[in-house]
Design a protein around this nucleic acid. Structure first.
Lengths: 340, 340
DNA sequence: CTGTTAGCGCCTTCAT
DNA sequence: ATGAAGGCGCTAACAG
């Protein structure tokens, strides 16, 4: 014999099992119309020779890739990592492979949409955590596959995310109802994204207005996403003549940075200053940070399920908004009584 | 005309450009032997119709997949995320796609090696951050592709990583040279991994012995990887009759948890207790944690390059060990003078 | 340099 | 239920 080496093909298995390639194929794919005995024989041979069908050849003939692409702007951040984990988990169960596309900075991103490296390689694309611009959307059409967005508002595509406006309202509302009036906000923007007007910020303005609290522009600081930036922003806030009694940060990571600065300045939390973030990052629990939790894993899971549904011809208009919830821990309290 | 809809094929492009499929193929693939004018024409047509070659069909004919698989035990942790980012960056530049396989817990892992979902789908496999067991190694042979390990000692495969023994030595050595003798160690083990005897622990024992410091088993606590676990371990350490003057944690995340417990207990760092970790996690900088930095991105980059080299027929025995370096910040200091 | 022709490994009618 | 044959989209070897 000569095929002791090299990869066996379907034809080999068929011959070895004494059937035609057609039957072999059907048997391996669990097609209904195959005699149980025949199937067993084929399966046995395949098993014995450690044979598995070539997904690429199969896909070529079938017209599908069996893959989905994930476009992610960050990998080393909890939110995105968790999201990817959830997505992968669902896709894996459906026997779909995950192709990873990292678009770190603006250049990566531009190149991704220009070259479209995912062309002809995926059955669907999941965009995680950033809004698609119109020009990008047009490029994506060339992919000619389903596109869904996860964890970011993307009006153009079916998406699953949280209600940022509501999340922000829960955070700021908590501060307001605690009696705070000098409420600062640290806006976190992704330096590599178009600085879209955040709903998390909108919540702040709306709520303060409703509470009859005049907006003090000096209490609003905008920084790049991240702990160090949060720390710096807080430094700025502390240097203010009339220091805020509370801080609303757009994310826990930023909040943690702020907390560090506050502590270093010798101030106590929450006695002197209250801090609230958004996310319910694992570190929030560790540091007793009051925050607005968002179901990250769930967002990933639902997104993947949405994709699977679309792949099976399901309706394309089924976006999902998941609830967030205020998690009160120990970085918030009523403001200290002052002689103001 | 009829092919205004549906995906164009190479044959279409060839016809449209007035050449044979062979020439079209060569032109698109940048093969040398094609008249500049001809190539230009083909490229123009392809461009005009937004045509790109089918990677799967191409791969089928060529015998390669153009993909590599990444096997990762965690996605939401900084170390792994960064690693993946680095790997992806290099592979992308080489026009190689990245298939992601997440093996979270032991069951995932077992299933991965049992089913080998990557079979026939990748040209190489990169195992990130965990040691391969013998049984698993045998299964991997069925993949019949290059396997390389990143960020973990895998004697069986070419790998790039740091020298854990050395890293630990730098950390503990720092404490010893500072004058500490009551040095505690918080060992971090991944609950989903085989609890291999860590070199980071070996460093501790060796160094203490060399310094003539008797080993006190109560000063060594083993916990699952993570901040909360580190915090708990520290609680245990603080409840000891003779409290340690310093703590060596296997990772920054664990160290940060420990720090939290220390602060909560009303003790000062580094005055009352020194803390040193390993990794140089971004948070370490934010929190002024003394640590032993390891070049994570670099490990990923080198690993990917090693893979590319292997794919081009390079030597298979070129493992790489990257240096770590002590980063002294503000959580370590000489022990307070006692009347001991 | 370029056109033609076999495959690459599998799926899917179409008959039987 | 099963075998035979055509086709999926592309590459490579061969003649020119």
């Amino acid at each position: 014999m000569s095929e002791s080496v090299g990869r066996l093909t379907l034809a080999d298995i068929a011959r070895l099992a004494g059937v035609g390639v057609g039957t072999a194929s059907r048997a391996l794919n669990g097609s209904s119309s195959v005699a149980p005995a025949t199937r067993a024989r084929v399966l046995a041979v395949a098993e014995q020779y450690h044979y598995v069908i070539s997904p690429d050849a199969s896909g070529l003939a079938r017209g599908t890739t069996g893959r989905v692409g994930l476009v992610v702007p960050h990998m080393s951040r909890w939110f995105f990592g968790t999201m990817v984990e959830a997505l992968e988990a669902v896709f894996r169960r459906a026997d779909i492979d995950v192709l990873l596309y990292h678009v770190g900075d603006r250049r990566d991103r531009q190149e991704f949409f220009q070259r479209l490296p995912a062309r002809r390689k995926v059955d669907a694309l999941v965009v995680v955590g950033f809004p698609i611009e119109e020009a990008e959307r047009q490029r994506l059409e060339l992919l000619d596959v389903h596109v869904v967005a996860a964890g970011g508002q993307n009006a153009d595509y079916p998406h699953v995310s949280i209600d940022d406006l509501n999340a922000g309202t829960q955070a700021v509302g908590h501060l307001v109802s605690l009696g705070h009036r000098a409420i600062a906000m640290i806006e976190a923007v992704d330096p590599d994204q178009s600085p879209s007007p955040s709903q998390r910020s909108a919540a702040y303005y709306t709520l303060l207005e409703e509470a009859g609290i005049p907006i003090d522009p000096r209490l609003v600081v905008q920084v790049d996403w991240g702990g160090v930036q949060g720390a710096e922003a807080m430094g700025q806030l502390l240097s203010l003549r009339s220091r805020p009694t509370s801080v609303y940060a757009h994310s826990d990571e930023v909040a943690l940075g702020a907390i560090r600065t506050i502590r270093r300045a010798g101030l106590r939390i929450p006695e002197d200053i209250s801090v609230v973030g958004i996310d319910d990052h694992p570190l929030a629990r560790l540091t007793d940070l009051t925050t607005v939790g968002q179901p990250v894993w769930e967002q990933g899971r639902r997104t993947a399920e949405l994709v699977l549904s679309l792949l099976e011809g399901g309706p394309a208009n089924s976006s999902v908004t998941l609830p967030t919830r205020l998690v009160v821990r120990r970085t918030t309290a009523p403001p200290a009584a002052t002689s103001d």
